[in-house]
Amino acid sequence: MGSFMASEWFRLIVGLVIVLAFSQLNALFLVWLERKVAGHIQLRIGPKEVGPFGLLQTIADGIKLVGKELITPRSADNKLFPVAPVLVFMPVLVGFLVLPFAPHLIIRDMNVGVLLIFAFSAFTVLAILAGGWSSNNKYALLGAIRSVAQNVAYEIPLLLAVLSVVLMVNSLQFSEIVKAQGRVWFVFVQPVAALIYLICATAETNRAPFDIPEAESELVAGFHTEFSGMRFGLFFLAEYTNMFIVSAVATSLFFGGWQGPFGFDLGIPGIVWFLAKTYVLIFVIMWVRWTFPRLRFDQLMNLSWKFMIPLSLANLIVTAIVLKLI
């Protein structure tokens, strides 16, 4: 039994359990945080009744959603329809494997960490299309088609921005990238790439001002119009977990992962730095959501193809030239 305890297998199983628990609790906390932030920005309180400061509100919503009946529209594609929410939620979990929480707290420090995260995050688009198309509802179809076009358009500048960082560190391993930011964070070295990354990340997770696929005022609820009960709950949790992953990657790529600013750690452990920075970024994403109106669909496309991609390409070329000269 002892050898099993120290073996690689045991470490993986414990890691998996921790990841599942952490991502679920985190998603619930983020839903509560978003409603509180939105409330106070709009001069109202947000959830307050259930539990202290309304903390149990999201759990109560979860129980309600689990209790709700799973309605399947009669003309829906009954093979793809129940599978779509699971398809959306599953790849998002994989992203947690390689996130650099602390120097030795990475579950699987793969040397292709960055690639793995973006490969699986591209998978959610397929699931959204499956969900939208299979619910056989015009609004859902429109929402799904829009989300495919949007994610394709914003995947490219996202990767180009990340590429310019990877170019500087010439390694795809997260721990390498974070260690390389010992003295100065990459956000000061690569401000343009950081800005592009944040904008495209908001678009990637379908968050306002880019939430065209589930634009409440136009497409009623976009691709998850027909989903009810825990199926809608899965879509909802996937969105918030995705938001956490995207800001976690941003902290590790641009804001120096588990390191304090300019090298001095002030004695605070690595993981506290990492989570603090991630939650600040998440707050910024929420803050943006409750301030700006929504972009129209073709403006969204123009912004990406005509402005983001050229800018990120130029940034990449400049980085390459500067690296060549030094």
Binding site: V37, H40, I41, Q42, L43, R44, I45, W287, W290, T291
Partner: peptide, 12 residues
């Protein structure tokens, strides 16, 4: 504008 509202007293 929105962040200044964050710590203003609640109206409801």
């Amino acid at each position: 504008v929105t962040v200044r509202r964050l710590w203003r007293p609640v109206v409801t």
